[in-house]
Design a protein around this nucleic acid. Structure first.
Lengths: 185, 185
DNA sequence: GTCTATACAGTGATAGAC
DNA sequence: GTCTATCACTGTATAGAC
């Protein structure tokens, strides 16, 4: 007996490999382990090889954030959308146990290869949050600062949680940020 | 003619290679390029190979931070030490153009190998800053939150500056953080 | 201390049988 | 779609001449 896979099913498994080992560290043999697929199947789904896989993974993550966080921030009632953002972010990053692939790729030499995807993800998050804050009554300048601080602090909290092996750092940071976006200045 | 090097002179060059390519991405041939030293010389200085080099580099960075930032925070007049911390951090990270090796190593699979060095660096920074804030009149709970926010936000600002290719993000974040530590609550 | 030569495992990638 | 075999290449590391 053998299992027939679909491309869409494989992408999240590859994503976890990249999360754990980074772009350079995630060798094809490790990706083979994680997915249970041989190189033949991998190259069938991703003719462009590893770079192709990484692009698919980043796009997959981006689509999730657009649907669950960015679009709601743009379209829904701002205070509810922001509350939802915090819940979604906490769930997505598994309360600090899961890193952000865009952040991870931004720090090593992978950054140039996926430059526009990485920049776009952060830019859209900051802009969507800023607009939601403005619609919630913040003045534009403070909303911009706050949005930048929030997105940046989430990345920093993930780094620090990993660095110290203590996810509570992430939970504490999220709680403080949540209060800040809730307190309309 | 040939140049005779000392171990201490080579370490900063290797550090830049790790900064640019990450631990996995910094191959010995790239390190050879950057240092101008053949593998023979490299293994002469670092018998343990690449891991040995990384340990030397991390220790080198740690010593710098201890001397320029952590110790002053512990021993000097708190408000002056904190001002000095901001200037030193801005200079060290080249206003966002240079990433933090501890943060970089924390995100990929290198983390386990250098676990205690990475955790210790962040822990000592946070504790030294917290104590300085307390000595500056902050209440302990708020000082702890602030210190954690500061160290985490610096890492996040470096990630975001790299991700967007825009060092101004780092400059803006540092300015906001500086104001926060200056405003005694 | 520096170099060259070399060993050998692992890399990303391709071809073709099933 | 999945697999195995195989490719050329680069990886880390070692030995030994100078």
């Amino acid at each position: 007996m053998r299992t027939i896979n679909e491309r869409a099913d494989v992408i999240p498994l590859i994503a976890e490999a990249f999360r754990e080992f980074g772009y350079e560290g995630a060798s094809l043999s490790r990706i083979t382990e994680r997915t249970g697929l041989g190189k033949g199947s991998l190259y069938h789904f991703f003719p462009g090889g590893k770079e192709d896989m990484a692009n698919a993974v980043l796009e997959n993550v981006d689509v999730w954030f657009e649907r669950e966080i960015f679009q709601p921030l743009r379209d829904n009632k701002p205070d509810l959308a922001i509350t939802r953002m915090w819940d979604a972010a906490d769930a997505y990053f598994r309360s600090g146990a899961r890193i952000c692939l865009f952040g991870s790729f931004a720090l090593d030499n992978t950054r140039d290869r996926f430059k526009s995807a990485i920049a776009g993800y952060f830019r859209r998050w900051i802009e969507a949050l800023r607009d939601a804050l403005v619609r919630d009554g913040w003045n534009p300048a403070e909303a911009k600062d706050c949005a930048e601080d929030v997105v940046l602090a989430i990345q920093g909290a993930l780094v620090l949680a990993r660095a110290t092996g203590n996810n509570a750092v992430f939970a504490r940071a999220l709680a403080r940020l949540r209060r800040r976006t809730a307190a309309n200045p």
